[in-house]
Design a protein around this nucleic acid. Structure first.
Lengths: 342, 342
DNA sequence: TGTTAGCACTCGTTTAACGTGAGTGCTAAC
DNA sequence: GTTAGCACTCACGTTAAACGAGTGCTAACA
């Protein structure tokens, strides 16, 4: 016995129904609601087969069937293969991004907001790693006598900054001069490379060593601060509207997971080079997400720097729709950052 | 019949017990657990009086009593009057703030984190309004051809920034020159005043009008962006660990309230000139917070600019402890910003 | 006059029993 | 291969009964 076209059609109907209702699907429901010219008894036989094949689970003997992770996997692969990702939302998405801003944080927060309100799931938006970004421009702004704000503008018009410690009493003009010099040297290097360049400079200008070493130290500080990507959430409370999270303990586990951020960052950083990722329940490898699916997509800043956006919802997620929204949002972000460039 | 010392002692015992256990307190519990040399019957009479006075509620006739909002109010007023705010946590708090940073956002995020982990409630940390802060220094950093980052350093070493649109093609040097001029004119004015000053300048330098008007427009943009205080949360999932929020719908309402932020901002902005605020249940005026209390304290940046920190938990909150932690944190933040100043 | 023991009463909670119905698996006939 | 029929299972909702925590009231006591 193996999977044939009819079994697949039935399985699809079961998944569709379960995604909609969250209640186990019975044979009668399929035979009547999704008229496929078969009696419930026939469906029953097929369902029995599908269970044996591992696509369906039965909560208890007198209940209907629910799709297994394996079933969702098949369903999603089918979706992806068919390229059935409808970007209907592209238009409505665009209008959310009329106000321009170059601040990474604002952009990802807004994007997360929009994503969650469109999907009604919890959304994640991750900024690209700072280390990969190419420096276009760099400037030190005096803050206090001992500290300055190091502003780094990247290739694609994204601003990153950090307050750093400055030993000597440098006035605004001195800092501006240094900024000019540093910009000249560091332009078109990545943040990760900046360290080495500065170290080379230190050797070159022995006399200015003291000052440069201070700056080198602090560029490294900036780098380490910026290396970890920022993560923004949207619709964190949405998960509570799904019956699979009506158990408060489960909901708390989920929300705690969001709060700590690092597990999710690790998840999002995997497979960053594929356009879409769908991880279903156990595939995430995170116990708290046993009943969740994580769908991600990427967007591009400049030529190769990539950021990730994603949606977390119950495994019975509206994959088609979510993939569509993510795809549209990815394009939108890519376009947004590209536009900022010129 | 009125409130005497014994009634008050009994009420206090009831509140203490209810805060600990969250189950209605019976007369026997008080007479045995908090031995006050009285039989349960006597306690019963007193409790009946306390109910009549409005300090106790009875969920149903065969259950114990629970404190009313009025009771908590009395309890808290007593706490505040006695000045019994123990800052035991001051020391453990200090070590959380060794790393210095001038970025407002980092500070308030970290503070929220610490607050929630110490109290096990949900914490709020609000940055002061930007408009009230005095400008020390101001600098434009080129980002793209059409945009620049306007960095504003305030009196107390706090950095605020925003990406603004620049019409003409100004190079780095031109922007730096403008920055110098603006700094000279705007130093020791508040952000709110900056608008007027710039408008005056526009009249003065008719020839540079085009450029200045552009900047004026954008300082106002910055101001409006910064006028709304930033709000950081900590421990948002903590609320789910209390039995009063075991109802998922209620929990969802609470979390949605956090997500939208504006209601809370409004609450936090009230009574900003008092050291402590305790709003109990209905006193908040927010339906979603009917069973919650909001405790706030303030911290100071510079001379008069104030920020607010707060904790939200069930009405049966450990008020003494929370007030202590908030007080310590307020001092800590005030000290942190003061240190950054010199 | 305040305190306490005693007792009837209330009412939410728990447990068990029971009927209901959705859904299945199997068999036999088409 | 499909389907009608039927016995069977089992979660779920309802009802009833026992339970017990806690109260209010009364009467006696110090």
């Amino acid at each position: 016995m193996s999977m044939d076209a009819r079994k697949f059609r039935i399985l699809q109907a079961i998944i569709d129904d379960y995604i909609l209702t969250a209640i186990p699907v019975g044979s009668r429901t399929i035979s009547k609601k999704y008229e496929m010219g078969l009696s419930s008894a026939t469906i029953r036989n097929e369902m029995s087969d599908l269970e044996e094949l591992g696509y369906l689970d039965q909560p208890h003997v007198s209940a209907g069937r629910i799709p297994s992770a394996k079933a969702y996997r098949l369903y999603v692969d089918q979706l992806l293969r068919a390229g059935k990702i409808h970007t209907d939302d592209a238009a409505s998405l665009r209008e959310h991004f009329t106000r321009r801003t170059g601040k990474m944080e604002d952009v990802i927060n807004r994007a997360a907001q929009v994503l969650s309100s469109l999907t009604h799931y919890t959304s994640l938006v991750m900024s690209p790693k700072g280390g990969d970004m190419t420096i276009r421009n760099l400037q030190l702004v005096p803050v206090t006598q001992n500290s300055a704000l190091l502003v780094i503008v990247t290739d694609s018009g994204i601003v990153r900054d950090a307050v750093i410690h400055v030993d000597s009493d440098l006035d605004a003009d001195a800092l501006y001069a240094i900024s000019g010099m540093l910009t000249q040297r560091l332009t078109s290097h990545t943040l990760a490379e900046a360290q080495h360049v500065i170290r080379a400079m230190t050797r070159e200008f022995a006399e200015k060593r003291a000052m440069l070493s201070g700056i080198s130290e602090l560029v490294s500080e900036v780098e380490s601060q910026q290396t970890q990507s920022k993560l923004a959430f949207g619709g964190t409370s949405n998960i509570l509207s799904f019956p699979e999270y009506s158990d408060v303990e489960k909901a708390r586990g989920f929300l705690s997971l969001l709060e700590s951020k690092d597990t999710l960052l690790r998840l999002l950083e995997q497979h960053q080079n594929v356009a879409f990722t769908v991880r279903i329940g156990p595939e995430t490898g995170v116990p708290e997400l046993r009943d969740c699916s994580l769908v991600t997509a990427t967007y591009t800043i400049g030529d190769h720097t990539q950021g990730t956006i994603g949606v977390i919802g119950p495994t019975r997620m509206q994959y088609g729709r979510v993939l569509g929204v993510l795809s549209a949002m990815g394009e939108q972000l890519t376009r947004l950052f590209a536009a900022d460039k010129e």
